[in-house]
Amino acid sequence: MWERLYIASGNRLPIIMTTVNRALSAPINIHCDHSDAMGARDAGWIQLYSENAQEAYDNLIQAVRIAEHRDVRLPVMVCMDGFIISHSIERMEMLDDMPVRNFIGPFKANYPLLDINNPVTYGPIDLQDYYIEHKRQQAEAMKLAGPVILEIGKEFGETFGRSYGFFEGYMLDDAELVIVGLGSSTGTVRSVVDELRAKGIAAGLLKLRTFRPFPAHEIAAAIGGAKAVAVLDRSDSFGAYGGPLFSEVRSALFGKNDAPPVVDYIYGLGGRDFGIADVHGIFDDLQDIVQNGAPEDEVQYITVRE
């Protein structure tokens, strides 16, 4: 269904898709990693990632508003980790129907297909004389989605008490050693940050929620002052220099004054466990980088036997 993703975004259809992130065959594996959604990162969909069931639920409600916003009109993937979130039991707060209905509001189609008195042609063939203009408009819509995501995240907070932005910083303001990640494993990182902070180590976490549109400037501002940054990638981009998140984060920092060294850890493919000891290992590496500089091999595979 790969090209369908591009058709949905190219037709500017405000579709919401819960993406239960799972590994891709072959070999066949149905457990968690981000290969599916990361592979679709250029498909023109907004991508929101969730740490837990509550965030997946809240993101889904906001996604409707974002997708249908007049300035945006793009499909949204609400990503949640397969099995780790999708098949676990955890506590969450459900909202009442009416306030959610009021928050979302009615859908208004701009050029409804079923308006038989004003027939419209959807999905025409678009040749050399127009295609690039339409793609340019799509890029602009993705750009305009940024402020909309922030505005709706704020309004959601004012209405329901949980605010959302592009990302969530945890102990980030004065952090020297920073891990950037997304999805359920950021909870594990947070607990290690607490342990390290108790020992006086300035560790911090940037948990990314909005991967598309990628908030490059905001991320650079948030972690540009750190001494070393590690990125967690739960998918690989074979043959690229590091995983997809690493490429984006490093690119966001490139050319900034005193930008910290950035290293990448590709982990947890096919649902492989990623635990506290693994996070400790990464922070140990970051401390080593601060003292001795970045290693030659900036991209590493962890949670793997080799």
């Binding site: 369908r4 058709i7 079923l114 308006d115 038989i116 419209v120 025409p124 678009d126 127009y130």
Partner: peptide, 20 residues
């Protein structure tokens, strides 16, 4: 499909959609 919907023209006087 390709011969009746070359943007910005359309031969269809009815609502029409091509997806894939």
């Amino acid at each position: 499909e390709v011969s009746t919907s070359i943007y910005p023209y359309s031969s269809w006087r009815i609502p029409w959609m091509h997806s894939a």
